[in-house]
Amino acid sequence: MHIAEGTLSGSTEGLVVLGLGWAVTAAGTAIGLRRMDYERVPQVALLSAAFFVVSLIQIPIGPTSVHLVLCGLIGLVLGWAAFPAMLVALTLQVLIAGVGGPTTLGINTFVMGTPAIVSYLLLRPGIHSKSETVTFAAAFFAGAFALLFGALLNASALALAGGSFRLFAGASLMAHVVAMPLEGLITATTVVFLRKVRPELLEAPLLATR
């Protein structure tokens, strides 16, 4: 789900997309940094590290391989601080792993950060529910659909730049079908677990354990 260096810089529309990506990323990062107080710093750093690591580990499943992104989880826990967390992790991926590129960093952060913020805004109430089932379902939805939303934004960015709109090119359909429930399950399990032992991380009341 990374846009590679040089894919967008060929056309005027592509340059506009790159610029828009940077603008949204800059704004999101500014808001995120402003809202990030002392207690938040380790959370941001640790989720940034987790994001950096999990998206580099490919899990081979059948003919394809998937990796986790954790957009939904990062959004639910960090809120707007998801932007600086992802910007840092994606910058390191460019420098260390050669994934994406320096000019596409803005659009890539936008593609990953926006679903995180949307999960935060739409599903935070859901994961604050008193019912464990509702919490689980909301978190599952956040995890699974953040991934789909990210793929949608990615495809739209490429389509706007003059490419053809293909949500899932070739084998990546299979990868998403596998990755969505996996991402949802991991997000949901983590959120329910956090609600039971460290609810303050989600700024939620303690979920009673039965």
Partner: peptide
């Protein structure tokens, strides 16, 4: 490389803490 990346993030965290 992956461990190195995590190290950078921890370093950034320390830097943020310092300035805060």
């Amino acid at each position: 490389d992956v461990i190195g990346g995590v190290g950078y993030i921890l370093g950034l965290m320390g830097l943020t803490f310092y300035f805060l």
